[in-house]
Design a protein around this nucleic acid. Structure first.
Lengths: 128, 128
DNA sequence: CAAGAGATACGATTATATTCGTAATAAAAT
DNA sequence: ATTTTATTACGAATATAATCGTATCTCTTG
């Protein structure tokens, strides 16, 4: 393969910032820092550095038009969630999706959530 | 809380060894090393060291009766899977179990797996 | 009991992730 | 134009994970 567009797993800190970008949309370092500061104490340049690293890894894209660069997640939340799940399934569930799902449900799932999932199953079965 | 019995998340390498211990049961370093060597090249003392670290973290227990210590996973596979899922749900799914489940199912799930899950849902609903 | 085989313990090295201080740069305000 | 302010770039320090070489210990056995 040539230039490795993706296949990168975000680290802990990186996932924190991705969650923010998915939530508030494209944002400057200052905005991301403000958001992250609501839940934890982190220096401004730390956020900046991590965003720069994420840019190197192509986890985010950035618009350099203005002095304050605007960062955005390179991949959708859905796409990233799928890849994180796939990774966990491989590492801890012997590759079995249903094992993971069953383990997730065995814990504490509300009636509403169970109903939602049942509806999804119905829709899935009608399709293929 | 007093002495922190658990709540430790296994690292990548540690999870690899846990998978082996769950599969083959209590085992010596040599046996674990043999098993891990089937899929990757890792030095004997590397495996030893990681098991020792895991012992410090209480991720494994060990029987020191014989010269070759016998290691075993401290927690069940089920318990560890649950905690890994919970962690992922927190970090990437805003705390929603059903979001994770739906994302997992949206990919490629066989008819048999869908049926298994539907049965589980039925059982769950009857309970509470 | 001395030597060899096989095991653990220890410490150093390397890799990666995280953090942040300081320098350099660019825009804005006076 | 000079100063102040806001920003990025850079590099170093710290923390954690992973790897493995060597020293040390402990049985076995000749």
């Amino acid at each position: 393969m040539a230039h490795e567009t993706n296949g990168v797993k975000p680290t802990e800190a990186e996932l924190t910032l991705l969650n923010i970008l998915w939530k508030i949309g494209p944002a400057t370092v200052r905005q991301v820092h403000a958001a992250v500061s609501e839940t934890q104490k982190t220096g401004y340049t730390t956020v900046l550095k991590i965003l720069q690293i994420m840019h190197d890894k192509s986890l985010v894209i950035r618009d350099e038009t203005n002095r304050a660069h605007v960062y955005a997640a390179a991949n959708s939340e859905t796409h990233t969630q799928s890849s994180l799940i796939k990774d966990l399934i491989t590492r801890a569930f012997g590759g079995s999706t249903s094992k993971l799902v069953m383990r997730a449900l065995n814990e504490n799932t509300s009636k509403q959530e169970i109903e939602d999932i049942r509806n999804l199953l119905n829709r899935l079965e009608k399709q293929d």
